[in-house]
Design a protein around this nucleic acid. Structure first.
Length: 617
DNA sequence: GTAGGGTTAG
């Protein structure tokens, strides 16, 4: 046994036969651990990992704390629970306490740091990687994919060149990274250079190409890889990705063609059936989703009825289809019929009732659901807002934060619109005596800011400060928004700094977006760009949108191009950035550039939405 | 117990 283990170790260090090795090693490891580890400890470890896999982290921790004997596997399992939840401080605490760390302990903590956004974490992860006493290929792959996921391809490539045995996993990570940055050519080139590709290589390439709107390239490569390949089993996932990609763009016919290319065979055929090229659940789900996207609920249902094996996602897709066309009866019928509804199923039903004006049922389901998440709250709050039940929305908004759920931009946009009837909101606010906490203050300030009543928002903020009510990061989003609307550059900067210095609130991406907005609106575009470059966050839609908005007002094509390209990369299907850029070029008489934008839009199959004009903006 | 890839909800 020991000799065999040694041989496998050597193979591993040379990176030969990754997958067989890993599966071999897993079974072997469990055999050896079972031999050496006392049975009680062995079973306790199993239980911890089971609890973590089923999301019962606190139970796992209780068991961990109660154990009087632990080995490194115990520590690592417990750590992995925190890593999964991105609770990095707790993971680190455990890591620092482990009596005997092994490579897995190091790999775990490093992967934790790299999976958090923000360069501070990346640097810490890298520091640990440099410090670790011994590395295996997982360590290298973790760091390379970590850099790639954070868009830092320079470092990723440098490590790729430096690693002792470059392998297919790190190549796949690089492909993903290139495509996150929109670098299609490099991704395709690297893909072609991989000596022995596996199914994940093709899948990484496919999903990236689809995200970048390069459906033609994706289709070509997919068919190239399929030719002369009789073990086509691995291709199904790639087909599924492209089918879904066509669906996103409403190209149902192309999707259906691909779907029909996969042999229609369902059910068991006894031996090694998994490796055969045939439709699986995901293929059916993806095709169904294409129909749902275009509102063709009949065709979707046809597929649903033909499926022999349905999973939760099949049910959810079908339910969301009925919700979309407001057939709540059928939606809830399926919900009742389905074997085990998950959080997503509940959320679909709740948002369905909420959107269709049945707040009572929406709230009923909401109260009954077992595991609420942020989207559950957002769905029901959005429902109250759309149905003009403002008090209800604000009440839920408060309740949500009392239960420790942190609002995001979806929540905020509902709650800001809630203050749509600003006079009503004001009355409600003044009448609230008992329940006026920081959250209601936030809602009110946000309401003023949203309606461009900047001085009212800032006044209220000052009053709040005088009353010694501690503002939160949400308060500052509204305050900064108010400054943006009122064109108060200096005030905005001052508030941004005061938030950090006086209140110790770390700026989030929303605050940066506001700051960029403030500067860009006043034409300080270089300063706005400097802010973007200085952020630890990867700029998102709001940030680039703010910059683009400023560019438009101040007719700055140079920065507009940068912002529009970034937006197109983030949301290739949205027509707004194309139209904006087109109009700017047209205004300046740069017709060649304008035409290029129009062609690009056509190539990406983006439909111009009503409400945007080619001529006037 | 650690690294890369496919479908669904606000």
């Amino acid at each position: 046994m020991a000799a065999l283990y040694g041989v496998l170790r050597k193979l591993k260090s040379r990176n030969i036969l990754q997958f067989p090795y890993i599966s071999c090693c897993r079974s072997l490891a469990s055999v050896t651990t079972a031999h050496k580890t006392p049975p009680l400890l062995y079973h306790a470890n199993k239980k911890i990992s089971h609890l973590i896999r089923t999301g019962r982290l606190s139970e796992a921790r209780a068991l961990f704390d109660s154990m009087n004997q632990r080995n490194t596997v115990t520590w690592n399992s417990m750590m992995s629970g925190y890593v999964h939840r991105r609770e990095i401080a707790k993971a680190r605490q455990l890591f620092d306490q482990i009596p005997q760390r092994d490579i897995v302990s190091w790999n775990l903590i490093i992967s934790a740091y790299f999976s958090c956004r923000g360069s501070r974490y990346v640097e810490e992860g890298r520091k640990l990687f440099d410090e670790m006493p011994e590395r295996d290929c997982v360590s290298w792959n973790t760091v390379i994919s970590g850099y790639a996921k954070n868009g830092r391809m320079k470092e990723a490539l440098k490590l790729f060149d430096a690693m002792p045995d470059p392998n297919v996993v790190s190549s796949n990570a690089l492909i993903t990274g290139f495509l996150l940055n929109g670098d299609v050519d490099s991704a395709v080139q690297l893909f072609r250079r991989i000596p022995v590709r596996d199914s994940a290589s093709l899948n990484a390439l496919m999903s990236g190409l689809v995200r970048n709107g390069e459906l033609d390239v994706a289709a070509r490569i997919l068919h190239e890889c399929g030719e002369g390949n009789d073990g086509k089993g691995d291709l199904v996932a790639a087909y599924n990705t492209l089918i879904a990609g066509y669906g996103q763009k409403g190209m149902v016919e192309e999707a259906r063609c691909l779907f029909d290319e996969i042999p229609d065979y369902q059910g068991e055929d006894g031996n090694k059936s998994e490796r055969r090229f045939r439709r699986n659940v995901v293929s059916w789900n993806s095709m169904m989703m294409c129909y749902v996207k275009t509102g063709d609920i009949v065709s979707a249902r046809e597929l649903f009825d033909r499926m022999i094996e349905r999973d939760t996602c099949s049910w959810n897709t079908m339910i969301s289809g009925y919700v979309q066309v407001s057939e709540m009866k059928e939606a809830s019928k399926l919900f009742m019929e389905m074997p085990s509804p998950d959080t997503l199923s509940w959320n679909s039903i709740i948002s369905g009732y909420a959107q269709n004006g049945d707040l009572g049922l929406a709230k009923d389901f909401f109260l009954r659901m077992p595991n609420k998440n942020l989207i559950s709250w957002n769905s029901v709050i959005a429902g109250y807002e759309k149905n003009e039940n403002y008090n209800g929305a604000i009440e839920l908004f408060s309740q949500m934060q009392l239960e420790g759920e942190r609002p995001d931009r979806h929540t905020l946009s509902s709650i800001l619109s809630v203050c749509g009837a600003i006079a009503d909101a004001c009355i409600v606010f003044n009448e609230m005596k008992l329940y006026k906490d920081v959250i209601t203050w936030n809602a009110m300030i946000g309401g003023y800011a949203f309606h461009g009543l900047a001085s009212e928002a800032l006044e209220l903020f000052k009053l709040m400060q005088r009353l010694k009510i501690h503002p939160t990061y949400i308060t500052f989003i509204s305050v900064l928004n108010a400054c943006a609307h009122a064109g108060l550059v200096e005030e905005g900067r001052r508030q941004f700094n005061s938030m950090i210095k006086d209140y110790g609130i770390e700026p989030q991406i929303e605050h940066f977006a506001s700051l960029v907005d403030i500067l860009a609106r006043q034409g300080q575009l270089q300063e706005a760009m400097d802010v973007i470059n200085s952020m630890l966050f990867k700029p998102d839609k709001a940030v680039w949108g703010a910059l683009l908005g400023g560019c438009r007002v101040h007719n700055n094509v140079e920065f507009a191009k940068v912002a529009a390209e970034a937006l197109i990369r983030l949301e290739p299907e949205s027509s707004a950035p194309y139209v904006l850029l087109y109009n700017m070029y047209a205004n300046l008489g740069q017709w060649d550039d304008a035409e290029r934008v129009r062609v690009l839009m056509e190539k990406n199959n983006v439909k111009k939405q009503t409400g945007y004009s080619w001529v006037d903006s």
